[in-house]
Amino acid sequence: MSFVDLKNIRVSYDGKNNILKELNLSMEKGELISLLGPSGCGKTTTLRVIAGLIEPNDGTFTVGDSNLTKVPVHKRNFGMVFQSYALFPHLTVRENVGFGLKLRKEKKEVIEKKVQAILEATDLSHYAERYPKQLSGGQRQRVALARALVIEPQLLLLDEPLSNLDAKLRISMRIEIKRIQRKLGITTVFVTHDQEECFSISDKVAVMNNGVIEQYDSPEEIYKNPKTEFVARFIGFENFFALTKQDTHTYTTSDGTLIETVHSAGRQQTTGTIRPDDILLSAHDQEIPSNSLAGTIRVRTFLGKSYQYEVETSIGKLLVNDVQVPGYQVGDKVFVVIPKEKLILV
């Protein structure tokens, strides 16, 4: 059994539509896992179930040996950072951060010491006497984090904590969050819809779609081996085509071309997918390369470090990013080469 376990969680707000369906998720102690998925897929709902702000219609939630499914929010001792930060506008930074400790009836000196320590760790000591509305977005974000951390929570829950910050701050804050999380060894659930942010920070990633977790793996594994078409699309695979199995590693496209891949599918009919970055182009006057399709360049877009081509082939339109200069012109005949270790079956 894992440290944290969500088993068969079902949530419905209106009694008709299930927002979460049979959701299962487990975490080990000290891990940072991410919930990744498009807006509306149920990430916040999952986090609110863990926090206790929503009671699931079905399913159980356990941490360690205790079943917390029906334990009220205020008895769980989880730190939560809301997307809106939800700071108390009538309290100073110091009072905001001390709020949880004061409720725990700790000694005044102890509270002061702990608050001071976390304010220093989050670089907020200069702003301790300010009110939330006198702070910048990044500072508010740190107050929300400090307020959640100071209670030494069993779990830390972060709901898109970086989405309101500008790009540069977002990167430095995610490094900071990871550092603090490591140092305190705090088991953390991080919600985001940003793929790069998620991969850079997480031990494991749960890709969510429509209330279910489609894949739960390490970031590398998800990047290299997406298990479903949805996951593949979400992390940047843009070319999808039907394949029919001939042998374990040999497949044919709809027009009969033989394509090899290092992967294998259980089913006879499957879908092959590849990133635009992973396809190679070669000129038409050369000999026919293996694992390739003939095609014609239809659209060429300059992307900066590469060109993006839309290539029309016998199995449909394929997107290819290619760095060769001067590259190809619209109308050029080319071969589209599909490296066998880069072709994924979903």
């Binding site: 929010v73 809301f82 959640a148």
Partner: peptide, 11 residues
């Protein structure tokens, strides 16, 4: 969410 934040902090 401010009310909920207070609850997660133990209120």
């Amino acid at each position: 969410e401010i009310m909920e934040a207070a609850e997660t902090l133990g209120a």
